[in-house]
Write a protein that binds this DNA or RNA. Structure first.
Lengths: 159, 159
DNA sequence: GGTGAAAGCACCGAGTT
DNA sequence: AACTCGGTGCTTTCACC
């Protein structure tokens, strides 16, 4: 949980790997003027420290037929039902992110669906969960992602 | 934009790479009972088709000192200001995702910050953008991510 | 904590079925 | 389309600094 100490070299390594996980360590090494072995050791340490938790492909969901995104706010009868409902929510595969929130909603989640009728099905599934009194849906017309790289650079600039 | 044709083998390859981008093609090949060359050709085709758009590291933002997440809904004076405001929003580095939405808000975004006071700074920046009349903030107490793997499996089951 | 070289693999293209 | 195979280049380790 604590803030981990990373130096400038680590940040540069992360920046390059965030942009492309398969960047050869030899390339990184050349660019930073260090040896490939050093890059390897540093990456391994960041993995062991739990800073790097994994790697994943980025996919074009539109091309896969999933072009619909909505956010759904969920109201519960009682706050004590939150964990129960969250588990049910997480069991629905097209819900890609779920948050327990303060404020208006108890739970707030992101839905990725094929189209409006598919989204309707998913929202009905949410409505059917015990304890859910009501939902409120926001439909995304356009998504823009400021990817992780951006965040890393910011962190880097500030440390 | 159209739905791309992927067979079962492609889906298995994607599943394994989504879980870990650096999974050796030889491992994938062994597990699927095909040759590593075939895996290579298929991945390349999916890259060329734009289905695989890249790869990225997954980081533990808490360990990097970024443990605060909020969603901010933005109200505008006029809908016609949307693109202008969106550009300003996207220029703020700690805003990791932004959506143009229907319904209550005009724009809806996700903020990743160090703590509450850092979040306050960011929200003030949003409020200061020309055309923004009001914002509404939801603070995340807990985030659970149903990662891409889950989605891929679902797609696979349905096709 | 870093280096550099060497061994072990993986990648990737060409040619074949 | 998929396979095999060989050259090339990347990763990973280790003795040394």
């Amino acid at each position: 949980m604590a803030k981990f100490k990373l130096d400038e070299t680590d940040h540069h390594i992360l920046d390059m790997l965030i942009e492309n996980t398969r960047t050869p360590f030899t390339d990184i090494a050349k660019r930073l003027g260090i040896s490939a072995g050093t890059v390897h050791v540093r990456v391994k340490k960041m993995e062991e420290a739990g800073i790097i938790t994994g790697s994943s492909l980025m996919l074009d969901y539109k091309k896969l037929g999933y072009s619909f995104i909505a956010y759904v706010g969920i109201f519960l009868q009682k706050t004590s039902q939150t964990q129960f409902v969250l588990e049910r929510i997480n069991a629905i595969p097209f819900i890609t992110v779920a948050h327990v929130t303060t404020g208006k909603f108890n739970i707030f989640c992101k839905v990725r669906a094929r189209d409006t009728s598919h989204a309707k099905e998913i929202i009905y599934m949410i409505d059917d969960i015990d304890g859910v009194t009501r939902t409120e849906t926001m439909i995304s017309l356009e998504e823009s992602i400021n990817d992780k790289k951006r965040l890393m650079h910011s962190i880097f600039q500030e440390i």
